[in-house]
Structure formats: structure tokens, C-alpha cells
Nucleic acid binder design. Structure first.
Lengths: 270, 270
DNA sequence: GCGAGCGCGTGACAAAAGTCACTGCCAGGC
DNA sequence: GCCTGGCAGTGACTTTTGTCACGCGCTCGC
């Protein structure tokens, strides 16, 4: 296995950052995971662990014990954390940055299943059913994760069932999102999905302005992976939405001019 | 809330059946769940519980205690166990029969997410994250389920973490299936999904014959809900597969004439 | 400053998916 | 028997989706 060290130093983020400056940024595009991987144990990630809702139930001693066994890994933007189909070694808890979970088709198309935010965990599936990763994960920005081995996670769940319940909660949340994706893919058009993505974006990270909520797009390619289509259709549909006066497009900045209109449009196409 | 009692008596199934003959078959098409529901407690479902992998870890006393709080519910074919969007009261463990989990679109189309077999549980999501049901469930055949209230499930998980791990495993299995559905919906054609459904069927419940594996279809409507399309396309694609000599169709009985051919076809269309 | 590479917009198609409207068949209830 | 209702098959379209092939403009590194 080749481990590519990315030159770019990880960005430190406020109080989330723990003291283990020496851990190398890790990345690779073809990690099939069975690994002679040597992780540098983190001196004291107790702070990071503590901040995780997942481990809120643990007391100081337990956190310390877990910390001894958790590894902090850093990834640069674009790095692949794990690839679909490779064997799973443990659970990831996202400390900072954002991670996308996605499938890739034989022809190279990508479908994003979820974008994880700090505080969430991922790769629970294979931890609990023993199979390979069902999808790939890559860092959308410089990212820090805590990695906890499969057996440690399971032991922890047995010892502190609250943790298992928390994990179930996280898994449930993702399951909901994934079911919503199916619903949209199965029942709606590209246009509908795109509009619904725009509205979700506006609701979660839109900045208000005089003309309407402002959101920033990723590349059309990326957006296409979110809504399950190809670049060209994203482009065309955005153009059309602009022509219809629903949105204003300036490069990657979009202003939602007619929120009600878009919502009505969604409702109509159902 | 209206509770419709279906006249048809529940079919008893071998040694799975527990003693509470009096429990009425329950069904409804529009149960929004908040319920003045009175369940008849089952006299002794220990036998049923014991048979469930989910509770394999429990000892006799625990099973008895759980049994006191579990309810056996029976549904006739076609009954709706719960409807998408309604509030969740607890966990279902399937004892006998088959249950489909599905979404319905505004225009009336149906997309099946999973078909549960005995031994599996469902509706874990809302139990652990507190939200409403993300999808509906209905009985594909006469069915018996054990129903355990949300709080009982959670208490049990805290007391016997092995149960939580088992539930996580069940959830993981479903998550895998659901991700596979997304992959197919996003990347492949109706034909591809149909072929892949046929092959899966052949692999799991195909009966061998001289000409090839024999499988029995549900209605085209139902099959369409499985592969995420409409009746007409199922019909046309089956006709075409037959014309190409891959399968032989006799009413709802299909013989896979050229398994390799179909597999090659799948691989080619990727 | 300039070439390479990337992201974007678009026209022209081709293919797939979905809709509508009918027809025919068969089983069940009266 | 006859009517009704639920499936199934199909022709004739329309809409959507996806593909290919370009052209354009920006930015980045030399």
C-alpha cells in the first residue's frame, strides 16, 4: 500500500485541535485498506473526544482510556478516507472539516449519499455487520477525524450502552437522509431535485440579502453528484431557473429571488 | 382514529404461534398512530421471543420479563402496519410472514425500500431518533409481529447492550440494501434494475429446472415498485428480455434461460 | 505573457423513461 | 351467465435524461 503524504499542513481549528502536531496528514487515492498502517497515537485527544456528543456519557476515566486507543488522523481536502469495497477497520468520528460519503459508478459518475459534519460518526455499518465499506469517503476540506478500531467500539458499546444508543441515533439520522435520496431519485426529476437542493442549502447555510437568500454553489460537477445527474443538466436547469426569474446566478453565487415560487414549483411537480 | 378489523382470521403457523388466540387481526390504511390503541398482552410469547436472533443473548428471566411487555400483533395480507409520517411508538420484530417497507409518491407511485423476513426487526429509526416513520410498512402475507414499546426497547438496550449491537447489525444490513437501491436508481436503467432483480430472485428463491432457474413474479405493478419504475416499462422490458431469449415468461412464472447472458448484459450496461 | 487545464454553457442528437388510451383476459360475485 | 374489476400487453407520443463535441474564459505556474 502506498501512503501519499500531502505537503499541505493541516489547518488548525480553534479549540478542537489537540496537541499531536506530529501526526502526518494522510491521504491516498487508492487505499484498499488492509494496511500496514501505523498510526501515531495521539498524546491526549481527550479534549476532542469530550466534545463529541457520541461520548457525552463517558466520565473522565473512560474518556482517557478511550483516548489511549483512539487515533487522530488528518486529511487534506480531496483525500480519500476509505474506498468502497475495502475492508473496514473501525469507526470514524469527525472532529473538524467535512466529509462526503459517495458511490462511484463504473462509468465514473458519482452519487453523494451524505455529507458529514463535525460531531457525527461514519462507517458504522461495517463496524457492526462486519462487511466491507458500502461507499467511499473523501475529505471536502482539510479534516480531522478520530479513528477507533472496530473491537474498541464494540467493547465500548457493551460497557457503556449509552454510546450504542448514540450511535444508533447517528445511524438513524443518516438512514433518513438516504431514504430521502431514494424518494427523490425514484419520484422526481432532475429539476425538482436541484430546486430542492437549493432550498435546503438556503435553509441551512443561506445568507440573507435584500433580494433574497444567498447561497454558494460547489462546482456543477459536485452539485450533479448531489442531485444524481450529470454536469450538463445542472448547468441547463440553473440557466432555466434563472430565465424564469426564480434565481440570480453570478458565477458560484446564487440569490434565491422567489422562494415561494420555487416551493410552489416543487409542490406542483410532485 | 379508526381501526378497521379485517374479517379474515389470522393464519396460524406451526410452532411460531403463541397462545393468545384472542388478539384481533389489526389493520388500517390511514393509521396516524397516536392511538388509543389497546393491545391485548400476549400470555406467553417467550417462545416467539426466544426464536429471535435479536434476543438470543437474553436468559430465561429476561425473556419472560420482556415477554410481559411485548405484544403480538397479527396482520392480514395487505394491511398497513404503519404509515409514513405517523409517530412511532415502538419496535417491530417480525415473527412470521413478510413485510414490505415502502415510500409512496404524491402521484401514487410506490418505491419499495426493503422486504423484511422473519427474524428481522424494523422501525428502529424512529425508536432511536424520536422522529416519525420515514416510510410505510404493509404486510405482504398474513403476518405476525412482536411489538415492543420505544421505552422498553431503549431500556433493554441499556441493560443488555448485546441487544443494541444486534439491532445495529440489523440496521446496518438494511442500510446496505438501501444504499444499493440508490446506486441502482442513480446509475442504471430500468432494464438493468429489472435484470438485477430477476437474478437476485433466482439466487435467493429460484427453483431449478431443466431449462433454468424458475422464479415467480409478483404483479407487474409490484415489481415496478421494486425496481423504481412504472408497470408499463416492466411489461415492455420483460417482453423484450423474452424476445432476446434470455427468459421465458408464462404468466407469472419466469424461467431464466440464459443466466450468463443476463449477467453479461448487466456488466455491459454499467 | 502564454499555454495547459478546468469549469462552464450550449447545440444537436439519441436513448430512456414515462404517459395515455385501448384492448383483451380471467376470476369472482351475484 | 354476465358484469365488474384487476391485471397485462401495446401503440403512439411527449418529456426527460444523458452524450458528444465544441467554444469560451479564468487561473496558475512557469
Amino acid at each position: 500500500m502506498t501512503v501519499v503524504m500531502r505537503g499541505r499542513p493541516p489547518r488548525h481549528r480553534g479549540d478542537q485541535v489537540v496537541g499531536a502536531g506530529g501526526t502526518p496528514t494522510r491521504g491516498l487515492s487508492n487505499d484498499h485498506g488492509t494496511s500496514d498502517d501505523k498510526m501515531t497515537p495521539v498524546s491526549s485527544p481527550v479534549v476532542s473526544l469530550q466534545a463529541q456528543p457520541l461520548f457525552a456519557a463517558l466520565d473522565e476515566a473512560e474518556l482517557t482510556s478511550l483516548a489511549d486507543r483512539a487515533h487522530l488522523r488528518r486529511y487534506a481536502q480531496g483525500d480519500v478516507l476509505f474506498a468502497e469495497g475495502s475492508a473496514c477497520e473501525g469507526l470514524y468520528v469527525l472532529v473538524s472539516g467535512r466529509v462526503k460519503i459517495f458511490k462511484t459508478s463504473a462509468s465514473g459518475r458519482e452519487q453523494i449519499l451524505a455529507v458529514e459534519e463535525p460531531g457525527s460518526s461514519f462507517a458504522e455499518l461495517p463496524v457492526f455487520d462486519g462487511g466491507p465499506y458500502p461507499a467511499s469517503a473523501s475529505a471536502m476540506s482539510d479534516t480531522e477525524v478520530l479513528f477507533i478500531s472496530r473491537s474498541d467500539v464494540r467493547a465500548l458499546c457493551l460497557e457503556r450502552p449509552e454510546v450504542a444508543l448514540k450511535i444508533l441515533q447517528v445511524v438513524a439520522a443518516r438512514q433518513r437522509r438516504v431514504v430521502a435520496v431514494i424518494e427523490e431519485l425514484s419520484f422526481t426529476t432532475v429539476r425538482h431535485r436541484l430546486v430542492s437542493w437549493l432550498l435546503r442549502q438556503a435553509a441551512t447555510s443561506g445568507r440573507p440579502s435584500a433580494r433574497g437568500s444567498i447561497i454558494t454553489l460547489p462546482s456543477h460537477q459536485e452539485l450533479a453528484a448531489h442531485v444524481g445527474t450529470v454536469r450538463e443538466l445542472v448547468s441547463r436547469n440553473l440557466t432555466r431557473l434563472q430565465a424564469q426569474g426564480f434565481i440570480a446566478v453570478e458565477a458560484r453565487v446564487i440569490t434565491i429571488l422567489d422562494l415561494q415560487g420555487l416551493e410552489a414549483d416543487l409542490a406542483a411537480s410532485e
